[in-house]
Amino acid sequence: MISDGRKIIHIDMDAFYASVEQRDDPALRGRPVAVGGSALRGVVAAASYEARKFGVRSAMPSVTAKRLCPELVFVRPRFDVYKAVSRQIRAIFLDYTPLVEPLSLDEAYLDVTENLKHMRSATLIAAEIRARILAETGLTASAGISYNKFLAKQASDQMKPNGQFVITPDMGADFAAALPVGKFHGIGPATTKRMNALGIFTGADLKARSPEFLAHHFGKAGPYFHAIAQGRDGRRVVPDRPRKSIGSETTFREDLSAPGPLEEGVAEQAAEVWHHCERFGLTGRTVTVKIKFADFQIVTRSHTTAAPVANLAELTRESIALLRGAFPLPKPIRLIGVTLSNLGGIALPAPVDQLALDLGGHCPY
């Protein structure tokens, strides 16, 4: 058993974007739905569970998704609605603990070791939060409960959709040992392939290698991999991580080559970025324009200003200038994006100090 007594919950909304669309449009309920893209082009941003049964997944080209599921219904994303619902859900989390670390609009870690409700069981807290999300938003969520972030996230996948699962300290090491290495935090497809070539396929295989062996082959990440293979993860729940960049991009309905429509597209993305800057009280000095050509080749152009970008007009002007630098185009463009980085301005809210509550010793999960 390896635990420092922490109780971590990972909440993951079930097919969030698609579920919001099905909630708001009864005609979509029970049907395979893809948010984003179209039958002819673009990429799926999210898929309903009905669509997932056919193999449709997020980040899949729309034409592939339509081929897998001919009855697939494509819906334009409504990010303002998703963000509003996400704020509702975040408010529920904050009723239980100030230690909330959002990962995206639809998932977050909560440290409930010491919580505002004085509840001793993280399992009961997770169940209560899920019930409140359903009652207040009409949406379902899944939860994982464990003694660290790695295992809590793994646990939330076990009973999807609309369920929860607990990995106690007594279970952690065995659970991690049975996992394929591709499931481990920080191990992507390329690292998985390298590990497989070394005869490492599961957490047990990873644990059997020495930290020195793993450091030799995987650098500084090696000791970390060895630790999580034993069910150990020392990462803390950190509320409101500072943003490194703010960006927006769009895929055009048809490939574009003419300067006018492309500049309009850049201006629209700059406006979306500036909307977020105003919302978060941030600005930045580095403007980047991303261009994806019809053959999926991607190029970026950046410029760092002497002072932070002051307003939307300046951001739009900088973005269009970067786009114009790409002309004459070697081929048509299918996607354009604008990102502002090197951020500063009004800081995001600082983490709230964890409240010290006397819960009477060790608490059950």
Rank of each mutant, 00 (worst) to 15 (best):
N342R: 12
H217M: 13
I2W: 11
P169W: 13
F165R: 01
A18K: 13
V309L: 08
L340M: 05
R253N: 12
Q230W: 09
L335P: 00
D14V: 05
V20F: 06
E268G: 06
I125P: 02
Q88T: 12
P61N: 03
A221P: 08
P239A: 09
A51F: 11
V237P: 03
E50W: 14
G138Y: 07
G138S: 05
R253V: 14
S146V: 07
L134I: 06
F201G: 12
D24M: 06
S341K: 09
E272A: 15
G42L: 13
T97H: 04
M60S: 07
L28S: 10
R317V: 08
G337D: 02
G37C: 01
D205I: 02
Y224T: 12
T250M: 07
G163R: 01
A215Q: 15
R241P: 12
D25I: 07
A15R: 02
A122D: 00
G36W: 02
S104A: 11
R23P: 05
G360M: 07
D157R: 08
V75Q: 05
R132K: 15
L340A: 04
R235H: 14
N148C: 03
D205V: 02
M13H: 00
D106W: 00
I92K: 01
R120L: 10
A229E: 09
P169M: 11
A45I: 04
D358M: 10
R41Y: 05
